[in-house]
Simulated scan of single mutants.
Amino acid sequence: MIDPVDEEGNVPSWCTLTSATTPRAARTVATEAWRRAQHDFAQVVTPEDLRMLFVRRSEMTFRRFGLDHYMQTDIARGLLEISLGREAEGEARLRRFCERFDVDIEDRILRAAVSDARLRARENGFQ
Rank of each mutant, 00 (worst) to 15 (best):
E7C: 08
S83K: 02
P47Q: 09
R57Q: 11
D74I: 00
L79R: 00
M52W: 06
E81M: 03
Q43F: 03
A37R: 11
M52K: 12
P47A: 09
R51Q: 12
F62S: 04
P47C: 10
Q43V: 04
D74F: 00
E8D: 13
A37T: 10
R56P: 02
E32Y: 02
A76R: 05
M52L: 12
G90H: 00
R86P: 01
L80P: 00
L17T: 09
A25N: 14
E7L: 10
Q43L: 14
I82L: 04
T28E: 12
T73M: 06
E32K: 08
V5E: 06
T21F: 04
D49Q: 05
R63I: 05
R24N: 11
D68V: 04
E59M: 09
V55Y: 11
G9A: 09
S58D: 12
T21E: 06
N10E: 13
N10S: 12
E59S: 08
V44M: 13
P47R: 05
T22D: 15
T46K: 09
L80D: 01
M71L: 10
G85R: 02
T16G: 14
T18E: 14
G78M: 01
V45Q: 13
E8W: 04
L67N: 11
E7I: 04
A76I: 11
R63Y: 03
L17V: 10
A37S: 14
A88N: 14
C15Q: 07
R64V: 15
A33Y: 02
R51M: 08
T16A: 12
R56F: 04
A33C: 11
V11P: 02
A26K: 14
L80H: 01
A42R: 15
I75D: 00
A20W: 05
M60G: 08
G66F: 00
L84K: 01
I75F: 00
G9Q: 07
E32M: 09
T28M: 13
Y70W: 07
P47M: 06
R24D: 14
E48H: 06
T18V: 08
A76D: 13
T61G: 11
E89I: 02
R36C: 03
A20Q: 14
R56Q: 14
Q38H: 07
H69F: 07
T28H: 08
A30D: 11
L53K: 06
R27M: 11
L79Q: 02
D6W: 00
M52F: 05
V55P: 03
R64N: 12
V44F: 02
S19Q: 09
A92V: 01
T21W: 03
W14E: 05
F54C: 08
M52Y: 08
S58I: 06
R57K: 12
L84Y: 01
D40C: 06
V45F: 03
